[in-house]
Computed example of a mutant assay.
Amino acid sequence: MNMKTEEILAHLVAFPSVVGQPNGNIVGWIQNYLESHGVDVAVLMGPEGDRANLFASIGPKDRSGIILSGHMDVVPANEDGWFTDPFVLRTESGKLYGRGASDMKGFLACVLASVPNLSTASLTRPIHLSFSYDEEAGCRGVPHLIKRLPQLCAEPEGCIVGEPSGMRAIRAHKGKAAARIEVHGRSGHSSRPDQGLNAIHAMTAVLSEAVRQAESLAAGPFDSNFEPAYSSLQIGVIKGGQAVNIIPDICTADIEARSISGVNPAELLMPVKAAVESLARLGFRTSWELLSQYPALSLSADSRLALLLHDLTGTEPLAAVSYGTEAGLFQAAGIEAIICGPGDIARAHRANEYMELAELTACQRMIEDLGKKLSV
């Protein structure tokens, strides 16, 4: 079944594959589409048991090739301001509106629309398709796929992660680690604070340490390729308490750190974790849960992959961006990685997210030109 790119995108957008939810429907549709073109597909169930990664190969799997990587999940579409149903693709004036149109089902649609061309291109080196789950929760799905790669194909030469970049390749991004803190105290009437343990009061010591750490990171080290040029830390969520006259017995907070290249983002959280653990001596019970973690990406300007993308796009790759992707995980596994995809990250995670038809055309052309290079 040969389908136009926008037709495929309409099918993909119609699946409400929200992060953290079962994704069997979208995986099954993609699997059926690929297999209808004779493509070898592996559905790789994650440890959650209700969602899966998908990996497929076109061309000889025993030779080194290129991975085209993207995620199937999207963030929820709960924002005010949607003109129409976010899970029904709407086309208007050359723009295609829908949740995930830019981040990043547009790229997936381009890859799938290129399959009929690639499958008849007599590739001498393979193109692999790596479609993951729960990227929006901190790249939770793709590590399970990466672990399976040695059983699925020869060591890949490189990986193109199709996050929205305006079809300009990007060589580096920051790393990230996020953690959830829980502080458990003892409830009681606010008139007798001596008989309780105020979890919110205890959490303030932890939050103060987080603020101190954030301020210290702003003093360097620096990498001028990023904006801001330093690693950062922030408190993103805090919850606790029932009423003003009840001693709160539980308080939770979510924090994250984003690191420049060469810095382990999880290590940036360690002073805060130490502050949490110190509460035990005051009688509080605490927990620390690492929610997500992925490393920074750093690809040299003269690498084979960067030169390849320069050739394919006709544009010098951008040095760095501050948001993160799965590319850092591929690089950490020994596979050179770079970002390049249609759309704009500024359109993502907001009402009336859209992709321009011209961007899809440019991306599909890049993928098919890659196929020509791997057929030589």
Rank of each mutant, 00 (worst) to 15 (best):
R258F: 09
S216C: 12
P248I: 07
E35Y: 12
S165D: 00
I238Y: 06
I260R: 00
G141M: 02
D254K: 14
D62E: 14
S261R: 08
S93D: 15
A319S: 14
A179F: 14
A77P: 05
S93Y: 13
G241F: 08
T5W: 04
S208T: 15
V13N: 00
I160E: 00
C340M: 05
P143K: 02
G81R: 14
P295H: 04
Q195G: 09
H144C: 13
A178T: 04
N2D: 15
L217K: 04
A14W: 03
S231W: 01
E359W: 03
G220Y: 02
A199D: 04
A346F: 05
N78Y: 12
D62P: 01
T315D: 11
L12E: 00
M355V: 05
L370G: 05
L207G: 08
G46C: 10
D73S: 06
I339M: 09
A320V: 00
P164F: 01
A257S: 12
V321H: 02
H173R: 07
P164E: 06
C139Y: 03
S102G: 07
R365N: 11
S224Q: 12
S303T: 14
P221K: 01
L279V: 08
V13I: 15
A229C: 09
C110W: 01
L207I: 15
E92M: 11
A169W: 00
I160V: 15
R63F: 13
V111A: 06
P193D: 13
E353I: 07
R90N: 12
E256M: 06
H71S: 11
S292M: 15
V376M: 08
